[in-house]
Design a protein around this nucleic acid. Structure first.
Lengths: 354, 354
DNA sequence: TGAAAAAACGGGAAGGTACACGGAAAAATA
DNA sequence: TATTTTTCCGTGTACCTTCCCGTTTTTTCA
């Protein structure tokens, strides 16, 4: 319960020492015109001596500016509830920084419709926003959007997946290669040395597809690097409905009766699980991605053995906070944040924070 | 870049509407004496109507109070570097909230010396602190300390382990039973149905011992609940030096030549790993606890297969933030926060945030 | 009824920063 | 030299709350 003694910091003290007014100190700090070189030098010296750091509270309080952030992520669809967690992350961050005059306006696009992405980003560009959080599902469109942002000097943060060679304020996501690599490591514990492994990439949109490939690469690399000789085969499924998955699985399982494990490279693992449950193929182990309700259910029924997850909610939370740190607090921001590669199983999912 | 229009919120507006002064409004808000019941009612009504929430920035800025927190955790010793992470967590939290007039004074005790714990907490009680973060390694002493805190109305937060029936502002830690339960689930993937399993509890201090037992309980419960019939045996090692561990292991392994897996219930797993490496017992799988340098090394050499971890750094970070939320922001605080039970292996440790 | 005591309330400063505005001094132009 | 333009700098106000110090009003009691 210590009371502060008399102030020895702050603009006031600088002004006193430099024998100028607070206004002048302010001009020096913000490098505005209207200060003679001599005065400027003197004030700068004192600032350096005092190791002066502006008081953030005062700054935010004094500036009447309301920062406006925009987030652009896929909407929660019946197809997948994956984006629920990021949305919650955004809202949590917003609740925390609203008191510092920050507003977050949320925009959503349809993951199966590039047009909706364009429509939404155009809306954002019309509003004058100070920062953007972006899940760049569509590559070319995201490049176009962020190029505009660069022109307008609006900083943007990528979450979930990165656009290489498009320098952003920050990227917060996961290392997909190593995530696949880990998946392979987990596989090894579930099957014998001679079991075949089936890798399944399920996605409608070609743009999302390269992420899946990256995981597959990691998966295959593990087996190669460690000298395992299990036969790995891959199938691609271009539709996400139950029937399409069923058909594809029926075909591949009919042709290969010695598949011991299936690795699904994204959250659509529940589709595969559903099929395995239906057909009572309990001898096939299953690894997939993402902490979704439907996946958890299959985890509980021992149909899915492991799930890999990258905390999408925290990614979004951190993304908003990165904008806040950069724009409001004017603090440096980590350029690349790789989320942990979490392993979820029946016995620990209850404690997981997505 | 929206500028705020004229204020419609804040004490000023309340005062204007109630036709009283700001001072009176303040008295009503803080329930201080010196306001007539009539005026008080009127102001309260307007506050309710406006759904007034005090501006935190203004509040912190105006109150000259510096909050003083104290943390009391074990010191980093040559014996274990476990407490490095919590220390970093505390420092990270402090860096973040220092700007809001919060100071954290760090106190350390020797985990093998109850006396040092008492000495340190007495020091804390002499200083007038506003909140305490505590790792309650010694039960009776912790109860004594926190009873004093209660008397002095100083809120305290437990991390790492809880003291049941000692109601605190918050407990931030892990569910040890389920952590052991998960360990057992992992074990199952590493060994055959007939392998023996050795559980090892290594600790000098009896007070710490019950935590280990809780994990053991969880471990055993898993096997029981799931109908596995592997033979489980436990040994206790009451010293932490290499030689003591070596001797104990030599004895038990000589008597049991069919042990397939060892589960060490705490971070001392590196001691066991070291012995296994020395004696080239590569046919024994090993699971243990905590993200420590020495453990990671053995993970890398495939001597430790899995490690379980509860983010001790984040526990401490959140503990400090809980005090901050409660005391400075006057926000409600979650009473029990259970950290995720993380699985660490060779292929994902590089991405782990301890 | 009048004075003293108590209660109720207003005003202002502090806390640190931002920024518009206006005044004074210096420099440039007529 | 007189006038205008720049350059430089100080002042005042706003942001919002807290808290102390007075002042005004009401109550109490002689």
């Amino acid at each position: 319960m210590a009371k502060k003694s008399t102030q020895l910091s702050g603009v006031k003290e600088i002004a006193r020492r430099a024998k100028v007014s607070i206004g002048t100190v302010d001009r020096v700090i913000h490098d505005r015109a209207g200060v003679s070189p001599k005065t400027k030098e003197k004030v700068k010296k004192i600032i350096a001596e005092m190791n002066y750091k502006p008081n953030l509270l005062g700054r935010i309080l004094a500036s009447k500016k309301t920062f406006r952030f925009a987030s652009l992520i896929p909407k929660v669809s019946p197809e997948t509830s994956f984006w629920e967690a990021p949305l919650k992350g955004i809202e949590a961050a917003e609740a925390e920084i609203r008191q510092y005059n920050v507003e977050v306006k949320k925009y959503f696009y349809d993951q199966n419709d590039k047009g909706s992405f364009v429509t939404q980003y155009r809306k954002i560009l019309k509003e004058e926003v100070d920062g953007v959080l972006l899940a760049p599902s569509f590559i070319d469109e995201s490049v176009a959007f962020t190029n505009q942002c660069k022109k307008l000097k609006i900083p943007y943060v990528f979450i979930d997946s990165d656009i290489p060679d498009q320098p952003s304020l920050a990227y917060i996501g996961s290392d997909l290669f190593h995530s696949g690599y880990l998946g392979a490591d987990l596989s090894r514990h579930l099957i014998g040395k001679k079991d075949k492994i089936l890798i399944i990439n399920i996605s409608k949109e070609l743009d999302n597809h390269h992420h899946l490939l990256r995981k597959e690469e990691g998966f295959r690399a593990y087996f190669k690097n460690n000298g395992y000789t299990n036969l790995l085969m891959t199938i691609e499924i271009r539709k996400t409905d139950h029937n399409a998955i069923k058909k594809a699985l029926e075909k591949v399982l009919a042709e290969n009766n010695d598949i011991g494990l299936i690795f699904v490279t994204n959250s659509k693992v529940s589709g595969v699980a559903s099929y395995l449950k239906e057909t009572k193929k309990t001898n096939i182990r299953l690894i997939g991605y993402d902490f979704l309700k439907e996946n958890i259910d299959f985890l509980n029924e021992n149909i899915i053995d492991f799930m890999i997850c990258h905390k999408p909610g925290e990614q979004a939370y951190r993304g908003i906070m990165a904008l806040y740190k950069h724009l409001v607090l004017k603090l440096p921001v980590e350029e690349n944040t790789f989320m942990p590669i979490d392993i979820i199983m029946k016995t620990n999912y209850a404690f997981y924070n997505n």
